[in-house]
Write a protein that binds this DNA or RNA. Structure first.
Length: 426
RNA sequence: GGAGGGGUGGCCGAGCGGUUUAAGGCGCACGCCUGGAAAGCGUGUUCACGGGAAACCGUGUCGGGGGUUCGAAUCCCCCUCCCUCCGCCA
């Protein structure tokens, strides 16, 4: 959510920033709505002030036993005008808010230009893609051959884009989750949270999925939303609050299932676990000051990267261009892991600095030490990591010619000491 | 799901149609006092929006939304959250 005042202050800069996202100018229309709203508000407030003044005089006159009929008539006449002004003011404010709520965040200055993923810039590459003496298979071939990954069974239960994991692969998902959480809650200092998976409209509005992306979410009959990411409950932990500066930064991590309708993804990644309606993810969220958020963004990204490094997975870090960023982000790094079966880098984490964009929607503020005025916090989030896709990368990276899967040393304690998933006998 | 009781500033807590400009207390900030501190005394202390160069002024805000009234923290209706009991339940 943008501050209309900042648009008032520099409309051309606002439109120029939106243009970097490929959007047409909107500032002029917004300012017109804003001027109308403020005019109505001033008129309303003047009417209310007069009503308050006259009502007080009526009370005083009554107390002295004087006649106040003239004042009573005046206020009665004001009532209708107040009602009209209230309705008009509300309509104007609502029109302005509706428009503002659907505008994405502005890209940071150091975000490269570009309309789509072809404009993204590679920042660094870590680890070398493994060499194989055989043609590496895709994860679903490996998983199904092991008899531990069953898409057909999932389809019977739930339809397309679900999977059933069994045995060592079910364990592997649990192991990866615990491994990631331990990394983030350890030296990185994130506090582990077990949040609700069903949330209200306000929460989903706060992080920016509503109102524009309702079609991407699942909604219960009772009107609650299944979280598409733990970013929603974790970030909303600070909604409508005023934090002391010394309490910042707040760093939260959570393992949750994530639910996405994938409405616009028909035909993409239809095979395998890459794109599912439900997947596990360990999320990282940080709440900090405007001064600290850029550094916090780097720190958060490094925490996510450290998971890949300890698992020995090759990856690259991409700085997203203005046209490829998500709705709430002002700057985003994507981590892309190497998938030997696909012979490609695929997104496994997206780490974004949202600036004060979500904080405004949530009314999440802090009070700088020694100051009276409050300011909006900056919010950041990133996957650390998508567990399902990590499992995919692990299978494809550590596959053996016989169909078995080696378990990286760092993960073995979480697998009960197992060092490889053996190929299915027979 | 049923019945009942509640929600007032950072916190506690009065107020239940009009000098309430939300009493009083705690906490916090600043000042006085002090060798220094405590105590004491004094002043200040919700948030948002609008107007203004500023000082400051105005409007709204007593869980949320409607209504009654010249006037609502106070009366009425709906919603929401918390607590107690009953029912159901991992």
């Amino acid at each position: 959510m943008h501050d209309i005042k900042s648009i008032r202050d520099d409309a051309p800069a606002f439109d120029a920033a939106l243009a970097r996202r490929g959007l047409t100018p909107v500032a002029a229309g917004l300012l017109e709505l804003d001027a109308r709203r403020r005019g109505l508000q001033t008129a309303l407030q003047e009417a209310l002030a007069r009503r308050n003044e006259a009502s007080k005089a009526i009370g005083a006159a009554r107390a002295k036993g004087l006649d106040a009929q003239g004042l009573i008539d005046e206020v009665a006449a004001l009532k209708e005008r107040i009602r009209e002004l209230e309705d008009s003011e509300r309509a104007a404010a609502s029109a302005l808010d509706t428009t503002l709520a659907e505008l994405p965040n502005l890209p940071a200055e150091d975000v490269p230009a570009g309309a789509d993923e072809r404009g993204n810039v590679e920042i660094r590459r870590v680890g070398a893609p493994p060499n194989f003496t055989f043609a590496p298979r895709e994860h679903f071939e490996l998983g199904e051959a092991l008899g531990l990954m069953d898409f057909a069974a999932a389809a019977k239960l739930s339809g397309a884009r679900f999977v059933v994991l069994k045995g060592a692969l079910a364990r592997l998902e649990r192991a990866l989750s615990a491994f990631m959480l331990d990394i983030h809650t350890g030296e990185a200092g994130y506090e582990e949270v077990a949040p609700p998976l069903l949330v209200k409209d306000d929460a989903v509005f706060g992080t920016g999925q509503l109102p524009k992306f309702a079609a991407d979410l699942f909604r219960t009959g009772e009107g609650l939303w299944l979280i598409p990411t733990a970013e929603v409950p974790l970030t909303n932990l600070v909604r409508e609050s005023i934090l002391a500066e010394v309490a910042l930064p707040l760093r939260f991590t959570a393992l949750t299932p994530c639910f996405r309708s994938e409405a616009g993804a028909a035909g993409r990644d239809t095979r395998g676990m890459i794109r599912q309606h439900q997947f596990a993810k360990v999320e990282l969220v940080a709440i900090t000051t405007p001064e600290q958020s850029a550094a916090e963004h780097e720190r958060l990204t490094r925490s996510a990267e450290s998971v890949l490094q300890r698992l020995g997975l090759a990856y690259r870090v991409m700085l997203l261009c203005a046209g490829d960023m998500g709705f709430g982000a002002r700057k985003t790094y994507d981590l892309e892991v190497w998938l030997p079966g696909q012979n490609a880098y695929r997104e496994i984490s997206s780490c974004s600095n949202c600036g004060d964009f979500q904080a405004r929607r949530m009314q999440a503020r802090y009070r700088p030490t020694g100051e009276k005025q409050t300011r909006f916090v900056h919010t950041l989030n990133g996957s650390g990591l998508a567990v399902g896709r990590t499992l995919v990368a692990l299978l494809e990276t550590y596959q053996q010619a016989d169909g078995g899967i080696l378990i990286p040393a760092a993960l073995q304690p979480y697998m009960g000491g197992l060092d490889r998933i053996p190929p299915q006998a027979g």
